[in-house]
Design a protein around this nucleic acid. Sequence first.
DNA 1: TGGCAGCTTATTGTATACAAATGGCATTCG
DNA 2: CGAATGCCATTTGTATACAATAAGCTGCCA
Lengths: 224, 224
Amino acid sequence: MSRASERAYNNIRSMILSGELQPGSQIREEALAELCGVSRTPVRDSLRRLEAEMFIRRNDSQRSFVADWSLDDLEDAFQLRAMLEAHAAKRAASRITREQLGRLRHHNAQLKQAIDIPNPDVPKFLDHNRQFHAIIVAAAASERLASMLGQVTEQPVVLRTARQYDLENLRRSHHDHDELLIAFDKRDGEWAAAVMTGHIRRAFHAYAQAHSTDTEIRKSNLAA
Amino acid sequence: MSRASERAYNNIRSMILSGELQPGSQIREEALAELCGVSRTPVRDSLRRLEAEMFIRRNDSQRSFVADWSLDDLEDAFQLRAMLEAHAAKRAASRITREQLGRLRHHNAQLKQAIDIPNPDVPKFLDHNRQFHAIIVAAAASERLASMLGQVTEQPVVLRTARQYDLENLRRSHHDHDELLIAFDKRDGEWAAAVMTGHIRRAFHAYAQAHSTDTEIRKSNLAA
DNA sequence: TGGCAGCTTATTGTATACAAATGGCATTCG
DNA sequence: CGAATGCCATTTGTATACAATAAGCTGCCA
């Protein structure tokens, strides 16, 4: 997609992910158009895309709202993600190349570095983590699977606490990655899938805990 | 979506599914606009949707083509569908209502009728089959899952043979449905999932066989 | 003759104007 | 006083004109 359209999409998407656009709030095409400095046409394109990705919902009369996810929705997304990503790991185990394995090791070493220091570099960890998972999805060699995973991987839920970055969880994540690497090395798809399932489910519980804590904080702020 | 947009989407989609628009052929927005009797705006909307559903692909310079599926693509889609629909069956087993079970039985009886006669009514069978599966997906109560299944359920592959309507397969399908009904009745999600997996995998093999036969016929026609 | 440059044409992207539809508000009638 | 209805404002849908971009062709030059 060319410039205006691309810009609108990225802008709106990041506004949703950052919480700048509040969950549940209505979205007006023209307002977004002004915010992005483009006309309504590319904004409409973006809204359709974001709707397909479930970042945005529309009511029965075509008005758009920022998706407001319940804890159930979150669990649902994570459940699907666990299933799909385990499947990806299984496929990857029999297809992954030496070169991809090497890159996997590289990113895993980097993310270990990011947390094995006095002042953990969480953004660095998250970046290498993302790339680690991306390589596995690529190795699975299924465009459809990749496209579906894209739909459940980024969660439009804003968390104000830092709990999801809990160090212990990050270390366990890294350990899972280590185990995945061995499973891939042995070409054991079942093992890889099992590790991945646990990996994602842990992520869910960390997320859910942060979510509930966050909700509590929000409520008490409201009460005050 | 309102009239023009809706019409354009349905028109284009059915033109792809019917083979009227040949796989691999380029699509021009204006041509479609004329065919549908609307302007390019709703056509563009539709193309974006169809692209997300992988009925259409775009090259690096934004030109659109009707997706051309290989046998591998087909297998990939069926594999994902089997996994997702088994998951749906499992979830449905613990959530399905008496009323939904009743409707399931109704449609299963109808599709049995459609093939248990001297002149089988295949369209009727397919319609009730579709509704049967739709009820299960609804009972699974996951919007995301439903949306993903939508993406892998309809295959833009035109088959000229009638082999996929092979009576024996239809009878086996009906038998699977019977077994699903019992599994639901017993609230046995694992059983339901297992039956569903086999059900979809059989469908794949029937489809694949028809596909290869069809390809053969096409080749010999080409040679003649 | 082969390939590259520049132009021409085909196609998509964007903006804008206008049409349709929806929601909210106020007024009126029971 | 409450509910229903009609009008006005807001928002989205569609068409069209124009801009940008990419593809294909032609002719020139090495």
